[in-house]
Design a protein around this nucleic acid. Structure first.
Lengths: 258, 258
DNA sequence: CGCCTATTTGATCTGATTCAAACAATGTGG
DNA sequence: CCACATTGTTTGAATCAGATCAAATAGGCG
């Protein structure tokens, strides 16, 4: 646990915000100089919990976390979003005093915390940073809505394909993709909680995706073997991610020959 | 179709924003004086469509509309939100140039349009109005996430109960409830598209809710007979609506005697 | 090696869909 | 004001995608 004024963690934060909304030099510097409180958090810990009234927000430096909510008393969990480096999972708490969902780590994470007062001051000084942050929360909402479409109107096969398309593009956008592969430290149980399915069913359907040679998924690494096929299987249209830099996707064979 | 500078439609708009985020006199006046383009739109028309790049946003003066998205080619529709008077269904287009969902009317509606340029100018002059609008989009996202929990992890009985609880509180918050009744001009088909169910199943489960004396629902009027029971059936917790004025709910009998 | 957690497979069950048809409502033109 | 068309609701029967229960297998790791 340490206070970091050096901005050594800022580049990713800056890159993420600039990727959402173009920023001037001065604005980027303002972001880079934010005083941040960096912590390492181990797996399966809550960063904030439903009902909390945080006085700070966080952004993810490293690792995987998720937004989730429990339904009923019997342990049904719905994961509403997976968060990767660069994300601001509880930015909403800047405007909405009480959290209506929890954020929990999936593996070990490095998280940077910023006080709301500091953030508000930065926005006052650089209104366009406020726009970038607003925009970030809007994309977050757009992702939830797309998931709603999936859970409501797509079958398990399409849902899994869609999730993998999304995660790949989001991770690629912040430089976390390696060719057509991403690190995906999720258990099938976690995927099932995100897609409204049972673990058993995720297992079986994932096997079908493998059998159709669309993906390879083992030991926390997901490789997309046929982007076009996976995209079609998931009825995936990336518009809702509102990416500024267009996705770079290719057949695995193309990448190898490049 | 008419240009309205008188602010005769503004009160609801102002009331809604003030109910999200307290506003000063000057701010309220700024909102009330917004030049707005008011139109009557008949049933089942799109106000904006997925892929559009609107240069204005709208707020609902009268009627019911919905945010929706089509999945696949075979007519599967997922409704992601029902919008009532006071709502700003496509405010997002102020920050996100391209619409990733459509907004359509359900019955006849009265809609007021405001140019983005005008809105941006207002926010520049009154930053706290910007906060109110940001907050509105955040609540919108919170509602989508709650629906995701329902569709992913609750059965049909709970989903319908939950939807009715939500609609009742949201409409009550803007003065559209009459005791424990609201006008609910939705077909069972529309409800099924919102909950990820089939029309037939919505019909059967709604009958069970009626049989359990939780609701009365006929000819576009929904009455909640037992709030506590409906809330429990839907696992409903209103936190996610982030209402400022606390909900006023009571058993129907209490209201009659009042 | 032994423990714990994750994945896989098989068998069975069920909430919800689909298909089909009857039955209100509501509205429309004559 | 009624015949007719249209749209929405209700009921029944057959079927299915996905859940649940149970147990075996495979990794990862101190």
């Amino acid at each position: 646990m340490s206070w970091d004024h050096s901005g050594s963690n800022a580049p990713l934060f800056v890159r993420k915000l600039a990727s959402i909304h173009p920023l001037t030099e001065a604005e980027q510097q303002g972001v880079a100089e934010l005083p941040m409180h960096v912590r390492e958090i181990r797996a399966d810990q809550d960063i904030v919990r439903e009902g909390d009234k945080p006085s700070r927000s966080c952004f993810m430096v490293e690792g995987f976390a998720c937004r989730y909510k429990m339904a009923g008393e019997d342990g049904r969990r719905q994961i509403m979003q997976f968060h990767v480096a660069g994300d601001l999972p509880d930015l909403m708490s800047l405007l909405l005093p009480v959290m209506d969902n929890s954020i929990g780590t999936l593996g070990a994470c490095k998280i940077a915390f910023v006080d709301h007062t500091v953030l508000r001051e930065l926005i006052r000084k650089h209104p366009r940073i406020g726009d970038a942050l607003w925009r970030d929360t809007l994309v977050d909402g757009a992702v939830s809505r797309e998931w709603l479409v999936g859970v409501g109107r797509r079958d398990a096969y399409a849902r899994i394909a869609h999730l993998f398309c999304e995660l790949f593009l989001r991770m690629q956008a912040v430089g976390l993709a390696d060719g057509m592969s991403i690190s995906l430290p999720l258990t099938q149980g976690e995927v099932s909680d995100a897609l409204g399915l049972s673990t058993v069913h995720v297992n079986r359907v994932a096997q079908t995706l493998r059998a159709n040679d669309l993906i390879t998924w083992k030991r926390s690494v997901l490789t997309i073997n046929h982007w076009d096929g996976l995209q079609k299987a998931g009825e995936f249209d990336p518009t809702y991610l509102h990416l500024i830099t267009p996705p770079r996707v290719a057949a695995a064979s193309d990448l190898r020959s490049a």
